[in-house]
Amino acid sequence: MNRTLNLVLLAIAIAFPLVAQALDELFYVSFASRILIYAVAATSLNLILGYGGMVSFGHAAFFGAGAYCVGIAMVHGVTSAWITWPLAMVVSALLAWVIGAVCLRTRGVYFIMITLAFAQMMYYIVLGLKAYGGEEGINLLNRSVIGFGVDLKNDVTFYYVCLGVLVAVLYLCQRLVRARFGNVVQAIRENETRMDAIGFPTFQYKLVCFVIAGGVCGLAGALIANQTKFVNPNLLHWPVSGELMIMVILGGLAYLYGGVIGAFVLLFLDELISPYTIFSKLYVGLVLLVIVLFAPHGIAGLIEKWRGTLPRKKDG
């Protein structure tokens, strides 16, 4: 995607809360923040699933771990975003390091199953944390404190912080994908045996990629805890992992905007359909089916094709 399009999208994203405010529809600002946060989480998953070719079915563990870091810290009176958000990233990254160090020794279906197993293990551990509400979770009294006159309690301010995080994550992701590291990770996805045979310790590169994705997803988790002012074990439950996977596949594997498009389409569809039927997931499923059948490269792939610039080599 080119620079002009990036700027137009950014301008729309910046203008959105102002328009919503003018129309007195502040609910949509909160909803849009949710989309931005899921976009961050899905983008982090795209890093391993799309670029790295590692089909992880346990990404909710990092999302939930980040959220619980903020929640638990708040229970103990630590409210500063400058402490709890980096903490969420570090804890999730460490968790990804441990989980990755075990899971990345397996391949294919085994990798999918063992990442799922780890995430479910985390889910049950959190479920058993009676000190932190067990299955009830934790109600946060307030959002994290940033200071410098930035008040996250204001939904519009919070939206802009989420937007800032998403833009930063997308930029970092693009740099990373186009740098030496991204070149290695994508080549491992194409032909791991050969990467080994030309001298790359592929396991280590995959692990680093896994840890980065885990850390970024932890930050998304910290944001979602703030957005809903509530954390509970469901954040770590497998449907969240599945939803993130659907977002990435729907949006476009190994496309920079894949996670963003997927998060937007999935959450928007859900919001659009759910007032009319309790079977909203069924219709979302049908949409997904159509996309997978007719647009194997996801919506981002479809857009690239329409723009007639389908690159020979996807590098974001």
Binding site: R178, A179, R180, G182, N183, V184, G199, F200
Partner: peptide, 17 residues
Amino acid sequence: LAVQARNGTSLSFWRPI
């Protein structure tokens, strides 16, 4: 890729290759 493997670290996340 093969040249990259023996030239410095590939844990480089910023500079476009």
